Each structure stands twice: as structure tokens, then as C-alpha cells.
Computed example of a mutant assay.
Amino acid sequence: MVTANATEKISLGTVQETLLIPLYFRAKETKKENGSINDPQAVELVDKIDYDFSKFDRGKASELGIISRTVILDNEVQKYIDEHPDCVIVNLGCGLCTRNLRLDLKQTKWYNLDFPDVIEVRKKFLKPKENCYDIAKSCFDETWPNDVNAGNKDKDVLIISEGVFMYFTEDEVKQLIQLIKKNFKKTTLYIEIMHSLLARHTNMHDTVTKTNATLGWGISQVRDMAKFDPGLKYITEWNFLDKMADLNDNLFIKISSKVNFFKNFCNKYGVFELTQ
């Protein structure tokens, strides 16, 4: 049991360690007087985990991008829940995301899916919430859909993932799409996607370079992901740069948010429908 003033070391795999990056920046933003998000659980976790978070402090681009993506997905997932109050949500590669604790879930069943070492940390530090469940499996484990109660597959299902797909290969992305398609009649996907050029240059990333993880997959045009499967339909995309311009007074960011060339290189959420 962790006492109020104690810190505890945790053991995470190579890619899993990167979950500490968004955790730290959400905590930092929460501590600001007029922060864009309010995530007290992130603050508590950073205070309790024995880790050198300060090595991420110079990652200003990552910090702004993570706060922007958090605001976007918080808003969009809440909209989805408001429109589908009895839905099922699966958070693929959830890490230490606390979105299910921040939002009004109504009658939603929420499933956090990640490797066993990550789920162990979640259970150790995060209090459970009604109708929220942890699945300690890889997202490529073909049995995880069996742990999701989708009401005989007739409920509205939303699958979200942030900061995850860029660590896959293209073949793994296609494999995961097939796994979802096989087990759910129809799903909506909110997936964070990185440009292929950036995914090929881990050494240029301002925070991932502070870990031993390596980026993998990206795609130059989000809509082209729909070519991976005939049941995958591109709906829209939400560009992080639009929100970054709202949250920051930097003139270059504001100008870049109006120029498609620059926007195309920024991370986005791709919104898709996947049907059997």
C-alpha cells in the first residue's frame, strides 16, 4: 500500500514506459492556474510514482500536442456518450489514461485494455469506477473481445486509441482492424495517427527519445487508412494543430493552423466506421 507521501517504483515494458509522457503533461497542465484540463488523478499518480519525469520538461511540442489531443478527445468522447448513453467504449492501449474518471459516462460500459504490466499499475494507483473494467491483454490477443460485453454485439461501440498506433507496423494495424471487424458488427473508431515521415524519425521526437521506444507506423493521408479494409469507412479527422492554435499564442502555430501543408504533418484523430 502506498502511503500519502511515499513514492513507488514501477516496472514497465519499453513501449509502455511512454505512457508516462502524457501522464506527466496532464499533471503539469492541471497544476496551472488556468489549465485547459483538470486531471487530479494524473497529479496524484505523478506524485506517487518514483520516476524522473523532469527529463520530459524540454518537450514543449509534445506537451502542447498532448494537451490539445486530450481536450479534443475529452470533448468528442463526451459528445458520443451524450448521443449514445448506453454505449460500449474500449480504450485500446489505455496506459494511465483517466478519461473514464473525468467524463460523465451515463450508462456507458468502459473497458481499458493494455498489457498486464500497465493494468497492474492502474489497479495499484487508480480507484475503480462503476461500469469501468480493465482488460490485461495485448490488443493483438484475439481473446480480448470476449471480455467486452457489447450486448450480443448490438450496442453502439466506440473504440478509441491515442499515442498507440504509431508504435505498430502497418501489418499490425491491419491485423487489429481485422480483429475488431471479426468481433463487432459495427464500430466507430477514434484513432490517433502520425504522419509517416515523422514516424520514421524517432530520433527527432522531443520526448520519445528520452525512452528506449521506437516509433513505427504512420500514414501521409488519414483517409488512406480506409484502403486497409473494405469495411472501413473514413468519416473525418481532427487535427491537433487546430486546438494547439486555440490554446497557444505562438504566432507560428496560429499561422501554421491555416496552412494545409503544415497541418498535414501534425498528428490527428482519424474518425472511421468499421462494419462487418
Results as ranks from 00 to 15, higher is better:
Met194Leu: 15
Pro40Ala: 06
Lys55Val: 14
Gln276His: 09
Thr207Cys: 15
Glu83Thr: 13
Lys109Tyr: 01
Gly93Asn: 06
Phe240Cys: 14
Ser68Cys: 03
Ile235Arg: 11
Glu29Ala: 02
Arg122Thr: 13
Val90Thr: 12
Ile49Ala: 02
Glu17His: 03
Tyr51Asn: 06
Ser11Arg: 00
Val46Arg: 04
Thr169Asp: 08
Leu92Glu: 05
Gln178Ala: 14
Lys129Thr: 10
Asp74Thr: 11
Lys258Asn: 14
Val164Ile: 13
Lys79Phe: 08
Lys129Gln: 12
Lys254His: 02
Ile219Gly: 03
Ile177Trp: 03
Val164Ala: 11
Ile21Gly: 02
Asp224Gly: 04
Lys127Asp: 13
Pro128Ala: 13
Tyr111Asn: 01
Val164Leu: 15
Phe262Trp: 11
Trp217Ser: 07
Leu215Phe: 11
Glu172Ser: 05
Val90Met: 11
Phe265Glu: 04
Lys9Asn: 10
Lys31Ala: 12
Phe115His: 13
Gly35Phe: 07
Lys186Gly: 00
Val157Ser: 05
Pro85Lys: 00
Thr18Tyr: 09
Asn203Arg: 12
Phe261His: 10
Gly93Ile: 05
Glu76Cys: 00
Asn183Trp: 05
Phe272Tyr: 13
Asn34Trp: 06
Gly270Leu: 14
Ser68Val: 06
Met225Leu: 15
Lys263Cys: 03
Met204Glu: 15
Asp74Phe: 02
Gly65Asn: 09
Glu273Pro: 00
Asp224Ser: 11
Ala42Val: 09
Thr169His: 02
Thr211Pro: 09
Asp171Phe: 01
Lys124Ile: 12
Lys48Gln: 12
Thr209Glu: 05
Phe25Trp: 04
Arg69Ile: 00
Phe240Lys: 05
Ile191Trp: 10
Val2Ile: 14
Leu215Lys: 02
Ile219Val: 15
Gly231Leu: 05
Ile180Arg: 08
Tyr133Ser: 13
Ser68Pro: 02
Thr70Gln: 01
Thr30Gln: 06
Asp147Asn: 07
Ala213Gly: 02
Thr209Ile: 14
Leu158Met: 03
Trp217Ala: 07
Ser161Asn: 03
Val90Asn: 08
Leu64Ala: 10
Asn152Cys: 05
Thr209Gln: 10
Leu179Asp: 12
Met166Phe: 13
Ile67Asp: 05
Thr70Leu: 04
Ser54Val: 00
Asp52Tyr: 02
Ile255Lys: 08
Lys174Phe: 01
Phe184Ile: 07
Asp82Lys: 14
Glu8Thr: 15
Val121His: 04
His201Pro: 00
Lys243Leu: 10
Ser138Lys: 08
Ser161Leu: 01
Ala245Leu: 07
Asp114Tyr: 12
Ser257Gly: 14
Asn212Lys: 13
Ser11Trp: 03
Gly65Ala: 09
